[in-house]
Design a protein around this nucleic acid. Structure first.
Lengths: 358, 358
DNA sequence: TGAATAATCTGAAACGATACAGAAAATTGC
DNA sequence: GCAATTTTCTGTATCGTTTCAGATTATTCA
């Protein structure tokens, strides 16, 4: 090392590191006897900085616990280091929000990104939070759920070249990052499970409405299952979107009392299954005996509710991780078609584990 | 209005509003023919700005949809407009995280604040996220749950004069904002409910361990109830913190097979209740007949699980709202003692509503 | 009327980071 | 040995906002 190193010593700089304040580039610059620019470049491994300098600067930075000021970076570069999770505050499938949040956070924890959660009330326009984020530039990427077959948010974000990933697929001819549970495979497997148990008249309670894409996938799988097994579809009419669980229970009861009721039912959420079971039992029918029920669940409680229910698990935390990875890579410029993934129904082994006791 | 208004017209400023960029103070300043400073002051109703100017500036701002640049504000003032929700990623009581998030968001939606969620894995130091936030100045306030009787986070934040609110109380002689469910009242009411039904030998499954403050409140209420009613406490030994639901089930079963089992049990979460019921039923005992069970729940599913369970509701979304209001007011400088609230057990009316069908 | 006061308004500096264009030092080539 | 490169480093401007210390204009009062 050269002894004649030039150390600029003017009062202003000298006064700096004295304070017990948060270190900035200036602090490091002073300590290293370098310019602020050099330090900035050195910390991000720029090629025009000498190797010795780089390691020296990086060492100092680590020693004094330097962390870049987010506001400074954001103001200068426009990069927010924020991922926004946009979701409908009302439609909470058990444990969906929390597991999504935890899954996403797991991935973001190893990055400089923070997670901002932006719920919107269903009476408001779902586009509103999206527009807000784009217009105010308050995030670098968006993760959203409740995807619709033709989703205006997907169109808007694509048009604005804004990175995002959806939980669920669309059917609008736009390639975009997504993660989805393979509901087609689930419905198909569900039909097979029922037929294996000798059930022939099968109904499906697919949830809200054809508004969401997964409704159609369920339908596809259901039909494929029926076709392959020769079982009969029993249709449930007028089960539109916004039924309360009590409504579902009551309708199930009425339905099961009509002539030729189903002997197998497929539910697409644990919540629905609970209500359907209540409806079934209200008629005196015995689950697993007179009728079988298959349900998907995102949190394992159906085994506790009625062990007879045939259960497939959907791992939402995994979905969160996948979605987070997808947006991050999209931000890096990876092609959307590379960022589409599915997860598959996991037949439940019937073990009563997984819910923490607290 | 004076016609001879001075409009500074130099090329630099003139070029500004032409671009389709986000409006800034400069944009407004140019449009209004004012200085940037004046606009800034006018927008925040400063006294030294003329009323006419204020209304004019505010009108323009609204018209062009001006929104202050968060990075600019943050860099200059240090104000982040962020509230951080810090929680343990593992200990998810059903619907706790989501309802907390939704409740907080409801309140923040009407403010300039954003909500950042910061989960930490239980193997890490709970202090870590707290220190990170303080050291990097990444939020203006913190909301945290899993409060312990003597909580180092509370001490640290208090010492650093950093605004926060806890879900749950401490017992360390520090006055700080909190919201808590009145577990004392719950346990007391639970005992009374059981005694009313003729139960005399009562056990309480209070959850994890004495680590959390609510354990002691439950204990207080439990004892008060026993004392007042003359019922007997049946103690459950070795039910330490981290039991899985399966463990709880098995222990309950063993326990109920011992001589002199309880005829009334109090649970402090819905999850526990499910496992305890399973354990009880494994011994052939009938709920509501041989034994009664009281449980608190944060999401109404116990009625669906076993209608015989006596249920009290804890409204977590309300807790979220209260906590959000508390931190915000604390940030405004309101005294901590003014920001402490309790919510009380709501006896469940047995209606099967509330879980959305999706 | 003129000075003192009050009412409005203003430019420059600063927060911390990065981009740009250029300067200084080290290395190379002949 | 010296110019031509290459390597390494640096100062200045900038992002959008607020604060500070004035400056300008209008109003009041004697």
């Amino acid at each position: 090392m050269n002894d004649k190193r030039h150390i600029p010593f003017d009062e202003e700089k000298a006064a700096l590191p004295a304070e017990g304040e948060r270190p900035t580039l200036k602090t490091i610059a002073f300590m290293a006897g370098l310019g602020v620019t050099t330090v900035s470049r050195a910390l991000k491994d720029a090629p025009e900085i000498g190797q010795a300098t780089k390691t020296r600067v990086q060492l100092i930075a680590k020693q004094i616990g330097y962390r870049p000021n987010r506001a400074g970076v954001r103001l200068r570069t426009g990069k927010t280091n924020v991922i926004s999770l946009v979701l409908n505050a009302q439609s909470e499938i058990m444990g969906l929000t929390s597991n999504l949040v935890y899954g996403i956070s797991e991935v973001l924890a190893e990055t400089p990104y923070h997670l901002i959660v932006t719920p919107y009330s269903p009476e408001n326009d779902p586009m509103h939070p999206i527009r807000y984020i784009i217009e105010t530039g308050s995030a670098d990427g968006i993760i959203m759920s409740q995807t619709e077959p033709s989703d205006p948010r997907v169109r808007y974000l694509t048009d604005h070249h804004f990175p995002f990933a959806t939980h669920g697929r669309t059917r609008m001819g736009i390639e975009h990052p997504f993660h989805d549970f393979d509901n087609e495979a689930y419905a198909y497997a569900a039909v097979k499970s029922l037929v294996e148990r000798g059930r022939r008249r099968i109904a499906m309670v697919a949830g809200p409405s054809p508004a969401h894409t997964y409704y159609w996938h369920l339908d596809d799988g259901f039909r494929r299952g029926l076709q392959e097994t020769g079982a009969t579809a029993v249709t449930l009419d007028h089960w539109n979107g916004t039924l309360s669980l009590t409504d579902v229970r009551n309708r199930t009861e009425m339905f099961m009392r009509e002539p030729n009721p189903p002997d197998g039912i497929i539910c697409c959420t644990g919540g629905l299954a609970v209500a359907v079971v209540a409806g079934i039992e209200a008629t005196g029918l015995k689950l697993g005996q007179d009728i079988d029920l298959v349900s998907k669940q995102t949190t394992n409680f159906l085994q506790w509710f009625r062990p007879e229910v045939i259960v497939y698990n959907e791992d939402i935390r995994h979905a969160g991780r996948e979605l987070a990875r997808a947006v991050l890579r999209r931000i890096e410029g990876v092609d959307p078609t590379q960022l589409q993934s599915l997860s598959y129904p996991e037949p439940d082994m019937g073990e009563r584990i997984g819910i923490s006791s607290r």
